[in-house]
Design a protein around this nucleic acid. Structure first.
Length: 925
RNA sequence: GCCGGUAUGGCGGAACUGGUAGACGCGACGGACUCAAAAUCCGUUUCUGGCAACAGAGUGUGGGUUCGAUUCCCUCUACCGGCACCA
């Protein structure tokens, strides 16, 4: 018999009746909760200066077709935090949108013959339904898609402002060119140096592109990292390394070529070793290399080989250092010595000036290079001996630092055949360096920089790794760059009144380049300045532009007069940003840059967009495979595999369910199509309900760790949901039997009100304390620690405690009611649907999601007696129970009197007794 | 190669500030209910020795600090992530 309750939907005019089923039926419960929220418009928010705001944002998805488990994890974390903060009294904004431009849509279009726009909009519609089925508290009124003109109009508008301020500019850039398709390829379309469609060797081409001067903000982007104290340390480190500031000296080695005077410019952080230079090395692309290669076929071949090398890869770190002499010499700026110039495969054209000075005595790479090619090695820095530090470094070194050295100096004399770590020390002093002998690192740099400066051959300089952001893409499915090329006026910006430059949506790319180039209706136009025939720019913007400011647009939805408005001042910055670590560098750095530009233009009041960053871990699953006859590897989905275990539960093997034959387990990796180890969220929601999936994802691992998928784990989460449901059902059923009439709700609440905390039995008091202590822990875990697995574990523990509580007295029932109400409230951010129904079942008519988070009753937490651990010599030997208020002497006495303790003391007198109040006693004998 | 991180039962993980190692869950084993199965419930489950009480060992390795170390410091090893041979 179902229990009948007054309908919570009644105020909304539905007239329906709520039944509490004995069996937990997630599909029914979840659709009812969702229709309740929808009818109440529960997730819409607006600006409200009377309440503190909380802007919780998850990285918006690319509409690839369907959600994957990484999305589900990401958005569940965001939803739990949003719902928790809402119950803490915050005005919570949690929006959602679509990062809708990009290459996959063009690839899908080519494969299916469907325009990217249609593919994208279809995917958005499907994925939106998926998100809604998971019960995320998203304000869909603010939904945006970056491929819609009302959004990307403001990309264009901002680009024009940046052009005016000189932040955007034009220069040539190098692209991958497919000579067969006559098109530019993205890096991911180049496979082993060949075009992905044609297989033709890819060429490098220089074409004009537009850049944004992010380097103007290098120092600020670096310095402000220190203010982002709520970002993970490793993300800040990655950003700092990416920006890559290094202080050093830029200096020139003069030389003459064909009667003209030049200097070979290098940058060094170790100007103190300048007197140890025995060669210079330049990159293969360096003009000197090109010049020397003209009359030297062997060198030309080497230069070509270097250019082909898969540069920019970490594997090059272990690559052999190779080089060839150019036959050219430059002059050492201080000694006047002639220094040979080599081409080196380890010198990068993209950093500094594409040339380095070779100091083999004190640089490990140069050392290896010199040894390989028989170049001289000269020691110019000597290690500091302990106690001699004043001699070497002036006052900068602390004695403590040097005293902590493991080895005294001079224990390992300089050898030109065996590299030792101390050769590259900065804590040494110059030798064999003429007038600089005896100077420490900083002193030597200062002196040498001053002398170079006097000669006009060098000065101190700060070098950055960060390069300007090239935003031109020779692609169709992106935001058009709003420029017009006029034969007489040059590059002319599209006037603001003509924005947006709308991207035609019906085109289907065929792989032979940007279809906009074949659409006169798009590119034929008049020059806005002179009115002559002109050509519209057909390049589109990098999609990172779209995602660099979407968070601000969420705060100003629907404004067609401005990019953002004063509503953004209310919501920005984002209080909590959640997403994958893979965006730790580019997306976050571009967003920080873009936000600064918007601030400089007076559009935003903040310069940092994200106050707190949470980088969630990846979702992994088992990989099973089998080698086929042809030596190929076939992958099987874990759902189709049976795992064998031994008596202990250790995995012993796995077989394919369909044929019973063994398959190989390759470990756990990120879910991917290629390894066939994905899990479909939609299937699981249908099977277990959204709440069980949400619960599993939050329980299985802390948010920042990787999460190992397990079907058994999901089953376990579903089991817990059924347990909570059944416990509430049995309680209200029993309640109903006791109640006289059908005025169930009043009865139930009356029971709760009848609780009189002063006159409780021990077991009643214990349950009540457990319930309130759990509330303290869960509040802390969700609020401060942002760790959800331990919060859920604590509630599970409380449910176990509750299961052992058998007390049908009015007071006992009142405490069970209170405990169940706390359980339901604590779980509500994680499993919102089921708790919504259970809250009503417990006799409430208000909406649980808007009910304030409960507060623990201090009285319930009070303990009269506490148990202390007693150790003898640091080993656990006994327990004693003392009054909670007992002083140290009393505790000490109780511990020493304990029989178990005395046994281990073996009649000896205690040497020392350590008492940690509320925790333990340690007796040392 | 460099930078960052991690290492705890059969498995995922807990122990937050140096104070009872293994919470919670999964798996496994045993039992109850059932004609049977599912579901559910109860019990056991770090290892070694012991019928047991109990004892000993134990948080990747080796050392150190401390009355006391999973936690702090040093060494090494393995794995994961990032990268830029960065001059």
């Amino acid at each position: 018999m179902p229990v009948r309750y007054p309908s919570p939907l009644k105020p909304l005019g539905s007239g329906e009746v709520f039944f509490m089923q004995e069996r937990y039926d997630p599909a029914a419960v979840e659709s009812q909760a969702r229709s309740y929220w929808q009818a109440a418009d529960a997730f819409s928010v607006s600006e409200d200066s009377s309440r503190p705001k909380y802007y919780c944002l998850c990285m918006f998805p690319y509409p690839s077709g369907r959600l994957h488990m990484g999305h589900v994890r990401n958005y569940t974390i965001g939803d739990v935090l949003s719902r928790f903060m809402r119950k803490q009294g915050y005005n919570v904004l949690q929006p959602m949108g679509w990062d809708a431009f990009g290459l996959p849509a063009e690839n899908a279009a080519m494969a299916n013959g469907v325009p990217p726009a249609k593919w994208t909009y279809d995917n958005i519609a499907y994925m939106k339904g998926q998100l809604q089925s998971l019960g995320f508290a998203l304000d869909w009124k603010r939904e945006l898609a970056t491929c819609r003109p009302d959004y990307y109009k403001w990309n264009q508008w901002m680009f024009l402002r940046m052009l005016e301020k000189g932040i955007a500019y034009k220069k040539t850039g190098v692209v991958n060119w497919d000579p067969v398709d006559q098109t530019v390829l993205a890096n991911e379309q180049v496979i082993d140096g060949r075009g992905w469609r044609t297989g033709a060797p890819v060429e490098k081409r220089e074409i004009p592109m537009y850049y944004l001067r992010i380097t103007d903000y290098s120092q600020d982007l670096l310095d402000a990292l220190d203010t982002l104290t709520d970002w993970p340390e490793r993300v800040r480190t990655m950003q700092a390394n990416w920006i890559g500031r290094s202080e050093g000296v830029r200096l020139g080695f003069p030389y003459e070529l064909e009667g003209e005077k030049h200097t070979l410019n290098v940058f060094t952080t170790r100007a103190d070793t300048l007197m140890g230079v025995t060669f210079c090395a330049v990159a293969a692309e360096h003009p000197l290399a090109t010049h020397a290669a003209k009359n030297d076929p062997a060198l030309a071949a080497f230069v070509e080989e270097c250019k082909k090398g898969t540069a920019m890869e970490a594997e090059l770190a272990v690559m052999e250092k190779k080089g060839m002499p150019t036959g050219l010499f430059v002059t050492h700026p201080l000694t006047g010595d002639q220094v040979p110039v080599w081409v080196g495969n380890y010198v990068l054209m993209t950093y500094g000036e594409g040339a380095v000075m070779g100091v083999p005595g004190h640089d490990e790479r140069d050392f290896e290079f010199a040894n390989r090619y028989g170049l001289p090695i000269k020691q110019v820095v000597e290690e500091v001996a302990t106690g001699d530090w004043r001699l070497a470094t002036g006052q900068n070194q602390s004695g403590a630092t040097l005293a902590s050295r493991q080895q005294p100096a001079a224990s390992s004399p300089f050898s030109s055949t065996q590299w030792q770590d101390w050769y590259s020390t900065k804590a040494g002093f110059c030798i064999n360096s003429g007038k600089y002998d005896g100077l420490g690192y900083q002193q030597a740099i200062d002196a040498i920089a001053a002398d170079l400066s006097a000669l006009g051959l060098g000065q101190k300089q700060v070098q950055w790794r960060l390069r300007d952001w090239g935003i031109s893409r020779q692609r169709y499915w992106g935001c058009p760059i709003p420029l017009i090329h006029c034969p007489t006026c040059g590059d002319v910006p599209v006037p603001d009144k003509d924005l947006p430059v709308v991207l035609p949506e019906g085109l289907v790319p065929d792989g032979s380049g940007n279809p906009l180039n074949k659409l006169p209706a798009f590119y034929e136009c008049k020059c806005p300045k002179c009115g002559a025939d002109a050509r519209r720019e057909t390049d589109t913007m990098d999609t990172f532009v779209d995602s660099s400011w979407y968070f601000a647009r969420f705060a100003s939805p629907g404004n067609d007069q401005a990019m953002v408005d004063e509503r953004a001042d209310y919501w920005m910055p984002v209080d909590q940003y959640i997403g994958g670590i893979e965006h730790a560098i580019l997306h976050l750095l571009y967003s920080r840059f873009w936000t600064r530009v918007m601030k400089d233009l007076g559009l935003l009041k903040v310069s940092e967009p994200f106050r707190n960053l949470l980088t969630q871990g990846m979702v992994l699953n088992d990989i099973y495979s089998r080698k086929t006859g042809e030596g190929r590897i076939q992958y099987f989905n874990p759902a189709d595999v049976d795992v064998q275990v031994d008596a202990k539960g250790t995995r012993t093997g796995a077989t394919l369910r369909s044929d019973g034959q063994p398959v190989e387990w390759e470990g756990m990796r990120t879910m991917s199509k290629s390894k066939n180890n994905g899990v479909d969220p939609q299937k699981l929601v249908g099977e277990y309900g959204a709440d069980s999936i949400r619960l599993f994802m939050m329980f299985k691992a802390p948010p920042e760790d990787t999460l190992e998928w397990s079907d058994d784990g999901v089953e376990g989460a579903a089991r817990f949901m059924r347990k909570v449901w059944r416990t509430v059902y049995e309680f209200v059923e029993g309640d109903r039997r006791q109640a006289t009439g059908d005025s169930k709700k009043e009865e139930s609440l009356a029971v709760a009100r009848s609780l009189s905390p002063v006159a409780l039995t021990d077991s009643q008091r214990n349950l009540r304390r457990a319930a309130h202590a759990t509330l303290v822990k869960v509040t802390d875990d969700l609020g401060r620690r942002r760790i959800f697995n331990t919060a859920i574990a604590a509630v599970m523990e409380l449910m176990n405690t509750l299961a052992k509580f058998e007390d049908d007295s009015p007071q006992g029932r009142a405490i069970v009611q209170e405990t169940l109400e706390l359980v339901v409230q604590m779980l509500s951010p994680i499993v919102p649907h089921a708790t919504h129904a259970l809250w009503q079942a417990l006799g409430h008519e208000d909406s649980l999601m808007d009910r304030a988070w409960p507060k623990p009753d201090p009285q319930a937490l009070v303990q009269d007696e506490i148990q202390l651990v007693v150790q003898v010599n640091g080993k656990l030997r006994s327990h004693v129970t003392v009054a909670a208020t007992a002083d140290e002497a009393t505790i000490r006495e109780a511990a020493l009197a304990d029989a178990g303790v005395q046994r281990w003391m073996e009649g000896k007198a205690p040497k020392k007794v350590i008492v940690v109040k509320g925790k333990l006693v340690n007796v040392v004998v």
